[in-house]
Design a protein around this nucleic acid. Sequence first.
DNA 1: TCAAAAGTGTTAAGTTTACACCCATGA
DNA 2: TCATGGGTGTAAACTTAACACTTTTGA
Lengths: 230, 230
Amino acid sequence: MYQTFYRDQTQFYVAVDCIIFGFSEGRLSLLLLKRNMEPAKGQWSLPGGFIEAQESAEVAAARVLSTLTGLDEVYMDQLMLFSKIDRDPGERVLSVAFYALINVADSNREQVRLHNAYWRDLDDLPALIFDHPEMVHSALKRLRIEASTKPIGFNLLPERFTVPQLQALYEAIYGISIDKRNFRKKLQSMPFLVKLDEKDKTSSKRGAYLYSFDKERYEKAKLEGIHFAL
Amino acid sequence: MYQTFYRDQTQFYVAVDCIIFGFSEGRLSLLLLKRNMEPAKGQWSLPGGFIEAQESAEVAAARVLSTLTGLDEVYMDQLMLFSKIDRDPGERVLSVAFYALINVADSNREQVRLHNAYWRDLDDLPALIFDHPEMVHSALKRLRIEASTKPIGFNLLPERFTVPQLQALYEAIYGISIDKRNFRKKLQSMPFLVKLDEKDKTSSKRGAYLYSFDKERYEKAKLEGIHFAL
DNA sequence: TCAAAAGTGTTAAGTTTACACCCATGA
DNA sequence: TCATGGGTGTAAACTTAACACTTTTGA
């Protein structure tokens, strides 16, 4: 019945592009592909692809990321739609950008390699095609805002992490250095950080205590009007 | 040369929807249309329409808003793309939501009336079609975040405004009441608020001093690392 | 003259910043 | 035994929150 109402309207190709920030050894990197298809073959780009008929943008983003890089179950947030007329020099294409911050573990490092994808240091990115630089810039801006109000850092670190690791993450996100005593003080005021009895000795002889993030307690604290900011 | 690469991909109708918050007499309202066309004729909806071939989403939003409500030169920010498969029960349509906060002046009140559009109190909205309630909810959430970091309130008030007006605005946005002494104290620490010699007597016998927002000084303060939060 | 809105200061609590030394351990 | 990274406390500066009375003026 409705199907005919819109028929005079223009239709558009709509793509998704994924801005995946990775954290490893105190540094942020960005997951990029070396395009092996036209347009822009051989150039660097974000993992991206077209939305299909029966997909929401969110579903498409997950599929595209998984297909192109082998990464599954990455929780991405939508950034926004990019729609400048000439953003794709080939043809008119709109693109929804999604972003996420994940831990670059050995497991996914391999995944990624097998797919012609690479983790490139965020401070030393190659030239990117189209408006991808703008997308990355916006995503980083958004990431910083998110990181200061949501425990985005906790989602991304391995399940058990140390305070120095967490601090390094925040330092990487904001590009600043933080006083470790003050940083710990703030952490102590967060009841959803659970100190474990074990230590991680991979980065020092003494070892650093492992912590875990108690999601339930976090949700509870949030309901009661959380005071979160790192 | 490129034009043929994407031809197997699905194309989509892409709409824009405008969430226009209005401020007047201490209250927030939302600009709505009573739809006079299918689908959902007679129901309430956000002003919205399709993106055309040679438009960016931003340009389309401005055109649609102007056409449907008579409001011109409203600076809107993009919220995000809504793309659930069944969000439009008629046909598959993606929609980019844009939002803005403006002053409901007598001038635009008339404009709006002539277009079958209405300012409806935000606390007492009629049922809206499709996923428009979700859009409004997201926009309000975003507006609150923006209002706490950007001088969004200054853009929207009349060019000259009083402190009580500004306070009422922030109270409306956050749905809280604010101590007026503390509020004024914060304002005093903002060097881009200029106190004028004139008073506005429309809401009291005594009259309240008018202020204006000095955009240049604001930009300067921002560059120097602003300390802004209301 | 009085009702109604505008305007004004101080103190206590809490938060943020700056800063320097000891601890544990494996090599 | 010593080099390396992990861990701890305190004081000053600043920010936020709580709180009540006086001023102005048109009706």
